[in-house]
Design a protein around this nucleic acid. Structure first.
Lengths: 109, 109
DNA sequence: ATTCTTTATCGTAATATTGCAATATTAAAT
DNA sequence: ATTTAATATTGCAATATTACGATAAAGAAT
């Protein structure tokens, strides 16, 4: 086993899990925060701000990109990365809905 | 290696990664949604609503609990699980802040 | 006391993730 | 054309996750 049984869950559940899983690592959180902190898309410069080797950072960027959390465009001999707002929007609306649904309940714990 | 280098990141980054990582599996998303859908804490009954064996569900519940996303109290010979609102609050406020910070930027991608 | 029910834990196999050195790629700069 | 700079890919070792059968634990019901 070891493989997630995605086929047993809904597309929405899988899609959300893909986003949260991609954010489920402090290095990828740090990358997202750095992309936001700097007031533009980052072309290069990410590796130097993380305590990880270049191949490791590259791999994390790849995962964030595959999950749809960031976009990357080639720009000269470097690559311009920036946050994909849509993904953050999805996360925000999901957790907003979740919080609303919880508020309406009588908590029994 | 295979072990996350948590020591290189901030407590906040690690804390958030813990929450998102716990939600980074469709079964755990499904558990959270089921806990909210049913209008009370669930005592038992979770296993029957998931396409996974009982030990697997138990393990997922353990992870959600360790991450602080759910609370569990013994109640007779079953256990009463419910969402921990604080954790959802943390996620919501984090993504809200993130979205706000993005909105203020000039998007360059 | 025994059985039933519910949940947890142990053990283990299959698979995935993390991290990095080495190397490749690609385009700019000289 | 060669060198330099930035990023990606490959290959691999260490570790973590996922899943579940078997078993344990603990209270409820008989």
């Amino acid at each position: 086993m070891g493989a997630t049984k995605t086929e047993h869950f809904t597309d929405k559940q899988n899609a959300l899990a893909t986003l949260t899983k991609a954010l489920g690592h402090p290095a990828r959180i740090a990358i997202m925060e750095y992309l936001i902190k700097v007031d533009a898309c980052i072309c290069g410069d990410i590796v130097n701000h993380l305590p990880l080797a270049q191949p490791t950072v590259s791999q994390h960027l790849k995962e964030l990109k595959q999950a749809g959390l960031i976009k990357g465009e080639v720009e000269g001999n470097s690559i311009c990365y920036c946050i994909d707002e849509k993904a953050i929007g999805k996360l925000l609306s999901y957790f907003t809905a979740l919080a609303n649904r919880i508020e309406k309940k009588n908590s029994c714990c």
